[in-house]
Amino acid sequence: MLGESMTKFYYQIKGRQPAGPNREAEWAWPPVFSGMVEAENRKAAKAQVEELYERQFPSRVLRSDVSDHAYLLHIQELREHDAYLLRRFEETACKECGAVFKLIDKYNDPNTETTSHDYCTEACKQAARFRDVQEFRLLNEGRSPAVIYQVRQKSTGRVYVGQTTQPFTLRWWQHLSNPTNCKFHSALGSSNITDWEFSVIEVIAYPEGCTNRAAYITQRESHWIEVLSAVDTGFNTVRPAGIADQAQVPLLLADLACPSGAGGQSPPIQR
């Protein structure tokens, strides 16, 4: 009908699980297939699905009649607040390898290795978990590496880039719990925390012969600020001028690689 706007509809085609010796026939889970169509109304959406699969589907079946039907079609209108379902159809970059995938493709693949929202395969998921364990071990041993991190506002794509020699999760907490009047903290305080993503974009590996680690960290921070346009379009106020972030209390950089017991000394203590 002319003038009517198109609406998104989420559909699931459920298959029948045959009756057994001690059970009645019922609809199996997970569904055989799930997808999304756009139509003027629910009736038109059902017609689209039936045309796509070249067969008709019942939308309601009495429990006593389940054995007479192979499939059941469930359709629901998608609204803006249905973010959980809508996300299944969005392209997502794997947090480990960067490969792009859609969750809905995983749900529709009976041989999928993982339905993780963050990783494309089980191998990537396990690799990330292994790294998390390694980082936790380094923290326990007082050998947390220096990192460059970004805080990204999902709704705008704008970023803040920073450096830290502390556990990076602590640095994120400091931004939230000790705000200043800078534009980054103002934006943090005036929006929902779920609109923000914190991630490490570089773990510092010092070049051979590096004599000024603090300057090298700041150099890498400057690099990422330029790459991500964090001053021009993001939340950084100024470009680094060769000094470390004074809002944090860093580890003694010369001792970063000195585990407990090396040379009879313990690692430095954060205060």
Rank of each mutant, 00 (worst) to 15 (best):
M1Y: 07
M1I: 11
M1E: 10
G3R: 08
G3F: 06
G3I: 05
G3E: 08
M6E: 10
T7P: 01
K8F: 12
Y10T: 03
Y10P: 03
G15D: 14
R16Q: 15
A19T: 13
N22S: 12
W27N: 05
P31Y: 03
V37N: 08
A39E: 09
N41M: 08
A45L: 01
A47H: 07
Q48W: 06
E50Q: 13
E50K: 06
E51A: 10
E54N: 14
F57S: 03
R60V: 14
V66P: 00
S67F: 05
S67L: 07
S67Y: 04
D68E: 14
H69M: 00
A70P: 01
A70V: 07
L72A: 06
L73Y: 01
H74Y: 13
E77K: 12
E77P: 06
E80Y: 06
H81A: 13
A83I: 14
R87S: 14
R87L: 09
R88E: 13
A93Q: 09
K95D: 12
C97L: 09
K102S: 09
L103M: 11
P110Y: 09
P110G: 04
S116T: 02
Y119P: 01
E122D: 15
A123L: 11
C124D: 08
C124Q: 05
K125T: 05
Q126S: 12
R129I: 01
F130G: 08
F130E: 11
V133Y: 10
E135G: 03
E135I: 14
E135D: 15
F136Y: 10
L139V: 10
E141K: 09
A146V: 13
V147R: 00
V147I: 08
Q150W: 02
S155R: 06
G157R: 08
G157E: 06
V159F: 04
R171L: 04
W172Q: 13
W173T: 11
H175R: 07
H175S: 03
N178M: 11
P179C: 02
T180L: 05
N181L: 10
C182G: 11
S186I: 13
A187R: 04
L188V: 04
G189T: 05
G189M: 06
G189S: 01
G189W: 02
G189I: 02
S191Y: 04
T194K: 15
W196L: 00
E197Y: 00
F198I: 00
S199H: 01
I204E: 03
I204C: 02
I204V: 14
A205L: 08
T211A: 14
N212D: 15
R213N: 05
Y216R: 03
Y216C: 03
E221I: 08
H223K: 11
W224Q: 03
E226S: 09
L228R: 06
S229C: 10
S229R: 15
S229F: 12
A230F: 08
G234E: 07
N236S: 07
N236T: 05
N236C: 10
T237F: 10
R239K: 15
R239D: 13
A247Y: 07
V249Y: 09
P250M: 07
L251S: 13
L251D: 12
L251G: 05
A254L: 13
A254C: 08
D255T: 04
L256H: 04
A257I: 02
P259Q: 09
S260R: 14
G263W: 05
S266R: 11
P267C: 07
I269S: 09
R271T: 11
